[in-house]
Design a protein around this nucleic acid. Structure first.
Lengths: 258, 258
DNA sequence: CCGGCCAAGTTGGCTGTGCAACTTCGCTGA
DNA sequence: TCAGCGAAGTTGCACAGCCAACTTGGCCGG
């Protein structure tokens, strides 16, 4: 099996993704230099035998990833050759870990089913009286604990999760086999103090600072499939984001109390 | 109508931005419901008297902001109605604070000029021997300190910064007057312990956890204009990200029978 | 009642065209 | 020498059309 999954562009057989993959490869390999200029859209279009619109579609992908600039009147300029982790790696801990060359692991600490509280119904868009599955998992990178994951699933997802073996590494992959897809997510990142469980699982002191990522994930139809709180040990991970005037994926907002 | 001047879409007189602004307004006001379906692209196009391509361009903006889904074969679905205006607030602490109804403040603690070290030359793409301006600033919201900002400017930017009065609230606005624009930024977010300066300025204990944002900003041409480290008091701000697989998820359902 | 098939509706992808706005650079004239 | 002008090059924006892939819902038959 060719492990092409590393390249998000080439995975689907559309023209603009192929062009984007080629250009990304050329940019990250330094073919255009550190702050070099790309060929004109028309030149790229002719080179690939496609229309200029297709090339523009490909370049929009690279612009969104922060690889190139985009101004009217002048050619695109390489912003950075450093390989930026694509957002797809934010959707799955397993996928993200593997993309960094680490070996992801996980252990299910607890799993229970109970009625959803008000906040959970709000986040998962559930009717009053609905039940949810709540999991607590310890995540490791190459054997060392790095993150505690508290996830709330709606029952139709939780029933699948409950059938997975407790030491399964990836959740999204087996769920995909059941037709449950994770495609869109909203993340909120802040700092929180470790509680007793966190301290025990991560091997840190109670009250020591953890990087918290709250995440609400939906499937392609917009239906929420999970609501999760991940708490990372400092120093092990950091979140990297690129944004530009054209397309902004990151925003800063005042924290609401909880 | 509630036409706020903050609206990023309507600021420029292009068709697709106007359409995007209208749709965003309608979505956030709940006109299509919490998880409602948008009109078809063709219907929107006819309504505005524009081509379908223009509508698609507008919808791409909303999809990038995480407002709507986007699947082949079915109409777009509203993902969330609550959404903050995005980019200008991220680049400018001042602009962000005001949009939240808070009164931003700032005080310059120190400013010096010195040769750039290796890391700074790397980040700002400077020649060996170049000089940089280094500032340390305390930022406040409605009088209370929330953030310590350590910024390194290349000399051509720093010379403008150095001429600003020490109690100036916004930096990006006066710099824009000099033709220095902030358009692209790479952010890295993690946790760090407060050092002596942080503790003194923010009024916290030494070693207490702070949310750190490292930021490298470039102008429209791709030239780095600042490299900054912001350290936030926990509980004051959080960072929010939306990401999407958007299209790469061609789901292979398990075939029945085998 | 249920399952499968089909048609209508909808978005994704690609092409081709045209014009406007903007940048860059060389040349000209003062 | 240098400021300014203008032409060439480049991207942004918009239009029109075509087909493929996919979803949905209804119809029909078992």
């Amino acid at each position: 099996m060719t492990d092409v999954a590393v390249d998000p562009d080439r995975s689907v057989g559309t023209l603009y993704r192929k062009v984007a993959a080629d250009l990304r490869e050329a940019i990250t390999s330094g073919a255009y230099g550190e702050a070099g200029r790309l060929p004109a859209e028309g030149a790229i279009a002719e080179q690939y035998g496609v229309s200029r619109g297709t090339v523009r579609q490909a370049l929009a992908v690279l612009r969104a990833d922060g690889l190139v600039t985009s101004r009217r009147g002048t050619r695109r300029v390489v912003l950075g050759t450093a390989r930026v982790q694509s957002f797809s790696e934010l959707l799955s801990f397993t996928h993200w870990a593997r993309s960094m060359g680490e070996e992801p692991g996980g252990r299910l600490e607890s799993l229970l089913r109970r009625p959803a509280d008000a906040a959970e119904r709000e986040q998962l868009r559930l009717e009053p009286g609905s039940e949810v599955y709540v999991t607590l998992r310890l995540r490791t990178l190459s054997g060392t604990p790095v993150m505690v994951e508290r996830t709330v699933y709606p029952s139709w997802v939780g029933e699948c999760v409950a059938q997975l073996p407790p030491d399964v590494v990836s959740h999204t992959e087996p769920l995909r086999e059941h037709g449950i897809l994770f495609t869109d997510a909203d993340h909120t990142i802040d700092v929180v103090a470790a509680n007793a469980d966190d301290a025990r699982l991560l091997g840190c002191r109670r009250g020591s600072p953890l990087l918290r990522e709250k995440r609400r994930t939906t499937d392609p139809t917009g239906i929420p499939v999970e609501w999760s709180q991940d708490r990372y040990l400092p120093g092990t991970v950091a979140f990297s984001i690129h944004n530009s005037l054209a397309s902004s994926a990151l925003s800063r907002h005042a924290r609401e109390g909880d």
